[in-house]
């Protein structure tokens, strides 16, 4: 029986520990992972070894050093390259996640209703 308590205790620890851990991803990493390198094929400037990405990284580094707000950084890149440069459009466009989730829910509903629970 004690094993169950042990499991319960361990799961609780697992659930609560993250609250106390700092988020260690630097702003620079976060941003460089979400900016597309426009001359490369589908790579972010974090991944790309190209010169172009290199230059973009140094501009980004400067912006972060100058404590520019996320909004300003966003505006800076989007006005120059268009929305296409942001590989993580989710934060500003919730529908990008909501539409697929909605469709998945419809699928599950139809699947369970029509295809699966047959009278």
């Amino acid at each position: 029986m004690y094993k169950k308590y042990l499991t319960f205790a361990l799961i609780s620890i697992l659930a609560f520990v993250p609250q106390f851990l700092p988020d260690d991803e630097s702003r620079f990493d976060e941003w460089s992972k979400s900016l597309l390198c426009p001359v490369c094929q589908g790579e972010t400037i974090y991944d790309s070894p190209s010169e172009y990405a290199d230059d973009m990284r140094s501009i980004l580094q400067e912006q972060i050093n100058n404590n520019m707000t996320d909004n300003d950084i966003y505006e800076f890149w989007v006005t120059r390259y268009g929305e296409k440069i942001i590989t993580n459009p989710i934060e500003r466009n919730y529908e990008v996640v909501l539409i697929p989730l909605f469709l998945v829910l419809i699928f599950i509903y139809v699947f369970l209703r029509k295809l699966y629970v047959k009278k």
């Binding site: 597309l36 929305e83 296409k84 440069i85 590989t87 993580n88 539409i99 697929p100 998945v104």
Partner: peptide, 26 residues
């Protein structure tokens, strides 16, 4: 979801005339 993610940019361009990139985060 993978299917929607793949055609999302196309969908956006046709409907809203906006070009977006669906990256890893999605």
């Amino acid at each position: 979801i993978v299917f929607i993610g793949t055609i999302f940019p196309l969908f956006y361009e046709t409907i809203y005339d906006r070009q977006i990139t669906i990256g890893r985060a999605y």
